[in-house]
């Protein structure tokens, strides 16, 4: 490899062919094009959202008013919904994904590894609108008829939980959105965790088994400490997906402009409000600017999360 790089990189011999210079130039220009693409994406969202930032100032970030009639807009409700659904989804998804990854790397018999692994990857490939439809037609009825009434009755009378699980059991809302997001991100996180777990040198695990450790002890004392940083990276990758997911959430979140303590109440996320309200906002209107400003906020949040994820994952794995 070293030699090849040295040979092909030596400038004296390479400059002689004009085809080379052209090809290298195109390749380099394409690379710069990608940079420009992301740059102009940020810039266009920011410029588009500028009227809203000007009109409402920094309070746009936390104001919970969204009143299209009086033309007063704030990002508070959507930011709350975005962060709340995503965090809830991660709380549910991480143990599930860990279980699947653990099963795939340590427990599954060899003949099962490939089919189950492929099934998990296929689950990740299902388009998000299908998750939305599935959530709307399959999960929502189950939630409203069985799960939510039971949870509301169970937690009735317990101080904090009583408020978190309250209200009419419509089936849609923050909690259902988080559930559908969970199902969506589990395959992503599980596949990443599996790949990360497989980077542990077999000798480490074999020596632990050799001194009599059980499978779980090997996982806990060898595999997890060895892969800790990358596992967090994989979780952040799933978090980034959950934050920006549009179609799956739009179907089941119920779209409301208010924050309610109950997880069963309707809400919205940045992505869902943009998808739902965009068609009703005219070109050049303050509402459109506010939606673009929301897009800019979403971009900043997911950029930070994805950048952290990538930094943590890169050393172990090309993700």
């Amino acid at each position: 490899m070293q030699q090849a790089v040295a040979l092909s990189g030596s400038p004296a011999t390479r400059r002689s062919s004009p085809g080379d210079a052209i090809f290298a130039g195109i390749a380099r220009a394409s690379g710069i094009l990608v940079l420009l693409l992301l740059g102009s994406l940020i810039l266009s969202l920011f410029i588009g959202g500028l009227p809203a930032f000007r009109q409402f100032g920094a309070s746009f970030l936390w104001s919970t008013t969204w009143d299209p009639v009086k033309e007063v807009f704030g990002a508070g409700v959507s930011v709350y919904g975005t962060v709340m659904t995503s965090i809830l989804a991660m709380v549910l998804a991480v143990p599930l994904a860990f279980g699947i990854a653990f099963y795939l790397t340590e427990l599954a018999p060899n003949w099962l590894r490939r089919p189950v692994g492929t099934a998990v990857e296929l689950l990740a490939a299902v388009p998000s609108i299908i998750y939305g439809m599935w959530g709307f037609f399959v999960i929502v009825p189950i939630m409203s008829q069985y799960v939510e009434p039971v949870l509301i009755d169970t937690f009735d009378g317990i101080p904090v939980l009583e408020d978190m699980f309250a209200g009419p059991p419509f089936g849609t809302g923050i909690f259902t959105a988080a559930l559908v997001l969970t199902v969506m991100v589990v395959p992503f996180i599980a596949a990443t965790m599996r790949d990360v777990f497989e980077t542990v040198p077999p000798v480490f695990k074999e020596s632990a088994y050799g001194v009599g450790c059980t499978t779980w002890e090997v996982m806990r004392s060898i595999v997890i400490p060895y892969t800790r940083v990358s596992v967090v990276g994989g979780i952040m990758l799933g978090f980034g997906r959950a934050l920006g997911e549009t179609m799956a959430v739009t179907f089941v979140i119920g779209n409301s402009d208010h924050i309610n303590a109950s997880l069963f109440s309707s809400g919205n996320t940045i992505a869902s409000i943009v998808a739902l309200e965009f068609p009703e906002s005219g070109t050049g209107s303050l509402k459109l600017a506010s939606l673009l400003a929301l897009g800019f906020i979403l971009f900043v949040i997911s950029f930070i999360v994805l950048a952290i994820s990538r930094t943590l994952l890169r050393p172990k794995l090309k993700v």
Partner: peptide
């Protein structure tokens, strides 16, 4: 370039829609 391409890979697709709209 690699970093930016990785970010684009996982960036919310609805934002790409907004960008192209602009």
């Amino acid at each position: 370039v690699r970093f930016v391409s990785d970010i684009l890979l996982s960036a919310p697709s609805i934002l790409i829609g907004l960008f192209v709209y602009e």
